Amino acid sequence: MSESDYNVDITKLFPEEHTRRTFAKVFDKNTIDLLHSLAGRGHFAQVEYPISTGKEAHVFRAVDHAGNFRAIKIYKIDTSDFRHMDEYLRFDRRFEHIKPERRSIVHAWTQKEFTSLLKLQKHAVNVPSPQVAKDNVLVMEFIGSKQGEAAPKLKDAHIGNISLFYEALVQNIAHMLEAKLIHGDLSDYNILVKDDMPVIIDVGQVIPTTHPNAKKFYERDLNNMLKVLHRHGLKELTFDDFYADIKKAKEGKK
């Protein structure tokens, strides 16, 4: 699509030409119109540039009229793996009646991530604070420096004190269990590091602890993170120790 194909002046919404080109290649007119509407309601003023790109979604840094940064996650309708999404949605009673077609499932997934962030935040899990979700767009807190530098993913981060990081990670997982939720895809790709502390992201696929495969997903999360923690220096940590530390934290003993 070219800039003339849109119903709005996108140069104000996307001041950088590179960002406009990215949108023209990846997102449809409906998404552009939706962003313009959300900007008009004051959720942000401009979309600046992508800070994370993936097959299913792009995350952009945005800024509001007061100069505060925001993160905007936009799911791609055409390339999202909606069958994979449907597997996670089908056991959530809120989305039992979603039509089995791509756009409806992606919209439901976006709403699920928004409500999951709210619930996790309520239970003291360190996640980005959600602001608004509509269709395939999620606006949330920007995780990074005051100068606007995005926090790195754990896979790219250097941890100054891995013991303190581990303690915080254990507490976050314990709080998730208190919320009766399991991440389901926890890895060093889905954790940001700010001030040497973990920030849990990409929670669209969280599942309730009552899910038929909850135990399998939980143990997979722990095994994934155990490998990451070994790479960061906790080479003596075992699965049983990790499991026990989370259990103690959940019971208030750690």
Rank of each mutant, 00 (worst) to 15 (best):
S2E: 13
E3K: 06
E3T: 08
S4W: 06
S4M: 10
Y6E: 00
N7T: 03
N7V: 10
T11L: 02
F14L: 14
H18L: 13
R20K: 05
R21S: 09
T22C: 12
D28V: 06
D33L: 13
L35W: 04
H36Y: 03
H36L: 01
H36W: 10
S37P: 11
R41I: 01
G42C: 05
H43Q: 02
A45M: 14
Q46K: 15
Y49H: 15
G54V: 15
K55R: 11
A57E: 07
V59E: 00
F60Y: 14
R61A: 03
A66N: 13
G67Q: 10
G67S: 05
N68W: 10
F69V: 05
A71C: 02
I72F: 04
I74S: 02
I74D: 04
K76L: 07
K76H: 06
D78E: 03
T79D: 07
R83M: 12
H84A: 11
M85G: 07
Y88W: 13
F95D: 04
H97C: 10
P100Q: 05
P100V: 11
I105L: 05
I105A: 05
T110S: 06
K112S: 13
F114M: 06
T115M: 06
T115A: 11
S116G: 09
S116M: 09
L118C: 14
K122R: 11
K122Y: 10
V127P: 11
D135A: 02
D135S: 01
N136A: 09
V137M: 05
L138Q: 09
F142L: 04
K146F: 08
Q147R: 09
G148R: 09
E149A: 07
K153S: 12
H158G: 07
I159D: 03
G160L: 11
L169R: 05
N172I: 04
H175S: 14
M176L: 00
M176F: 01
L181V: 03
I182T: 09
I182A: 06
H183Q: 05
H183C: 07
G184M: 03
G184C: 04
G184W: 07
L186V: 12
V193F: 11
V193D: 01
V193T: 10
K194I: 09
K194S: 08
K194L: 15
P198L: 04
V203M: 04
V203W: 06
T210C: 06
A214T: 09
K215H: 07
K216V: 13
N224C: 08
N224R: 04
M225C: 04
L226W: 11
V228T: 11
R231E: 09
L234V: 08
K235G: 03
Y243R: 14
A244K: 14
K247N: 09
A249Q: 09
A249K: 02
E251L: 00
E251Q: 11
G252D: 08
K254M: 02
